[in-house]
């Protein structure tokens, strides 16, 4: 009972499967999930900005939202406490920046809808 050709095929198949499973998420990761900043003013969607593109969005209610380096922040606001500005940049899916006086919400969503509604 010597080793036969089929044995090498089995071992190669296992190795290839392992390598495929290991590398396929890296190949598809960027495509599969793209994070977006969804800006809502008065309950209505004002803009959806992809986090991988730097942008500045003026909500025209005193709030300016900035996307930079994969994170989104409220860069300017005319509200009294400026809590939204002090929140700083957020980049995780489900993260939310709220400016209550200006009734503005910035929420990070995935283009493939997630089961997580929000992280506070």
């Amino acid at each position: 009972m010597k080793l036969r050709t089929g044995d090498a095929v089995v071992i190669a198949a296992v190795l290839v499967t392992a390598a495929f499973l290991l590398f396929c998420p890296r190949l598809f990761a960027e495509k599969r999930e793209r994070l977006l900043a969804e800006i809502t003013v008065d309950g209505e969607t004002a803009a959806v900005l992809p986090l991988d593109q730097d942008a500045v969005f003026d909500c025209r209610n005193g709030v300016v939202v900035t996307v930079s380096g994969g994170a989104v922040s409220v860069s300017e606001s005319d509200c009294p406490d400026r809590l939204c500005v002090r929140r700083g940049p957020v980049s995780d899916r489900g993260a939310v920046i709220v400016c209550l006086p200006n009734r503005t919400v910035v929420r990070i969503v995935s283009d493939a809808e997630s089961e997580v509604d929000g992280v506070v």
């Binding site: 009972m1 036969r4 089929g6 044995d7 090498a8 089995v10 071992i11 296992v14």
Partner: peptide
């Protein structure tokens, strides 16, 4: 085409 070694690996 398989010896016990291949069967065992599978």
């Amino acid at each position: 085409t398989l010896s016990p070694v291949g069967v065992s690996c599978a």
